[in-house]
Design a protein around this nucleic acid. Structure first.
Lengths: 224, 224
DNA sequence: CTAAAAAGTTGACTGCGGTCATTTTTTCCG
DNA sequence: CGGAAAAAATGACCGCAGTCAACTTTTTAG
């Protein structure tokens, strides 16, 4: 019976995540004590720390799992032939729904995701990249259909669209937007602006560049 | 001598900030204990908390003060007639210099600034708005000079430019950009993209909107 | 099967941010 | 002045995240 150990480890890890899901959502992240969480998972406090490096790590893995599910839902329902704006709106609003329903948890995730400290787990990062890849794919299709300029640098463009989303979310946290409809409107606005550009005619042309990105060390996949 | 109390309060507050500046920068935020900070300021630990609500509040006020100085430096040196791109680059790179030199402190500030929790001090927010106003002013001048489209919604445009900056900074924290030159390049790129737009000719026109923003409850001042 | 080694579990303990009852200083006013 | 009231300072204390030496379970190998 050499699988006993592995089996137990999987069970414990799941138990911790399940307890965390229950407690973090029900009672809140700050108000949940690790001791309670451990008790609820049927293990000792110290054991928790042989599975996760910190309380926050538990939350981040939990959220990463949720975000993968959300992404799956998007993929299942998205119409890849819809206009770029529509697809981006759908993708971003799916994410915002989660943020709106779990502001405390999402806030911690967003903080860590945008401004991580050194000891970040690579894997969690992958969920963000999954979303960036999706944006990238949407834009690439837009290029193929002629909606977007063909010589665009996709990476810059992807970053900008995602950054539009993050800033609107940030505005929501700060209190500049009140409800779902506000967020939707603002998001639509910035996306449209990104598409149409700020410059006036004579200038716009000269601002167009097509040299590829070389200083942002991230490779996105725009094709499945 | 009825001013004794007021005078002392001002002195203590300054002493705390001075000690914080020294210790947070020298030894780091995490590694500085409140007890040490209090000792260094010549007061008791409890007293610190009658001036600041938390360790983080001290840091945030400290940084807010630094950012005001940085902004002053920018104002003093900025050429208001330079092209929009140049002015924005100068403004953002001034800020990045601070971030680069104090990553730990800046990280905490950026996290709190973008995704604050409920009990945020209004005053600190004002520094961010100061910067947004500056961006707004730069863009407004650009409009006046004909560089930017006159019917642009300044708020949306301002948010987008600032969000370009924040995302590049975020990329730097994550490790997607390595050095000062990378950041500069990427920033330039996204700004140019914001100016020229992503859409191809026939589409670009129809994405242009000129209805003013109504769902983002922030009023910027684009004129001094 | 047994015993030693390896892997995993545990809760008492540590360190630090933040609190609060007590003490000290300052102000007010007769 | 003096002494009462108000304001401020203080450090012992608390709660909780995270550690670690002791202990238990599982695996390995002879």
């Amino acid at each position: 019976m050499s699988g006993k150990r592995e089996q137990n480890k999987r069970k414990n890890r799941q138990a911790i995540l399940a307890a965390a899901q229950q407690l973090f959502i029900q009672r809140g992240f700050e108000k949940t004590r690790i001791d309670d969480l451990a008790r609820s998972a049927g293990i000792g406090k110290g054991t928790v720390y042989s599975y996760f490096a910190s309380k926050e790590e538990i939350l981040l893995e939990l959220i990463a799992n949720m975000r993968i599910k959300i992404h799956q839902q998007f993929s299942d329902n998205n119409d890849a032939n819809a206009p770029v704006t529509a697809q981006l709106m759908t993708l971003f609003m799916c994410q915002f729904d989660f943020v709106e329903n779990n502001p405390e948890l999402a806030r911690i995730m967003l903080r860590e995701s945008m401004f991580p400290d050194k000891n970040t787990v690579e894997q969690r990062n992958q969920v963000d990249i999954k979303y960036l890849n999706t944006v990238s794919a949407i834009l690439y299709q837009g290029q193929q259909r002629g909606e977007l300029r063909g010589e665009l640098d996709l990476l810059t463009c992807t970053l900008q669209m995602y950054s539009n989303y993050l800033t609107i979310i940030s505005g929501w946290f700060i209190g500049y937007t009140r409800d779902h409809a506000d967020v939707r409107d603002c998001l639509q606005r910035t996306i449209l602006l990104s598409l149409s550009g700020c410059a006036s005619e004579p200038f716009a042309e000269q601002y167009k560049t097509n040299t590829p990105h070389q200083n942002f060390y991230l490779n996105l996949r725009c094709k499945d």
